[in-house]
Design a protein around this nucleic acid. Structure first.
Length: 205
DNA sequence: CCCTGATTCGC
DNA sequence: GCGAATCAGG
């Protein structure tokens, strides 16, 4: 494989977008990440600074463990706009009525309500037999039998962080199987975690 | 151990 | 110019 204009273009584009050399190499095909890096240097764009303000800090930008880039067709890499940021659905009440009394606390007061789950990262809920493909579900169930059953402390970047069981009980652990590169879960759990889209239609306010 | 980019150097 | 091997880090 040689560096045709097209390939160089794609290289430039992806590199500018912050894609890693290995990702670019994978996308291009026929080259290794070394080749990509080498080319990048020869092209003189080793520094991903676009234009202008050159921050002393190399890159606080790290699309590392949260850059789900669904591999697409090699023919049409056009609509590419996957933001790692998973925007949490925020409750927004435009119905804000002008209320001089901010807290009309009724006589009934429920003092404390601690969140049951400590919650470090936005872990997905357990698959509740939703709109998940039966195959994926079956695979998950099978996988969970062979799960490493690791504890929170044992989690690493390469261990599946899919929670199994009830966090409030002793019977709780994480999957712990090898993750799919770049993702927080193993292949099986990625399958159920990153479902394309579901029925979120019923959002009547 | 997995990954990242940077550099070197024979081709 | 090219990229595998190597280096240096996270």
């Amino acid at each position: 494989m040689s560096w045709t204009d097209e390939r160089v273009e794609l290289l430039k584009k992806m590199w500018t977008e912050g894609q890693s050399a290995s990702q670019i190499a994978k996308e291009l095909g026929g080259v290794t990440r070394n080749a990509v890096i080498g080319k990048v240097h020869r092209l003189g764009l080793s520094n991903r600074a676009g234009g202008g303000t050159q921050t002393a800090t190399p890159a606080p930008n790290k699309p590392e463990a949260a850059a789900p880039e669904p591999e697409a067709a090699t023919a049409a890499p056009k609509p590419r706009k996957a933001e790692p940021r998973a925007t949490p659905a925020d409750l927004d009440t435009p119905e804000a009525v002008s209320e001089p009394e901010p807290a009309p606390r009724p006589s009934n007061v429920t003092p404390l309500r601690k969140p049951i789950v400590p919650a470090g990262q936005p872990l997905p809920p357990q698959p509740s037999a939703n709109e998940i493909s039966p195959e994926a579900l079956a695979k998950v169930q099978e996988v969970e039998k062979s799960a490493k059953r690791i504890s929170l402390m044992e989690l690493t970047e390469r261990t599946c962080k899919w929670p199994i069981g009830d966090p409030a009980t002793e019977d709780f652990y994480f999957c712990g199987l090898p993750v799919q590169q770049g993702k927080p879960y193993c292949e099986a759990h990625v399958g159920v975690a990153f479902q394309p889209m579901s029925s979120r239609r019923d959002r009547r306010r």
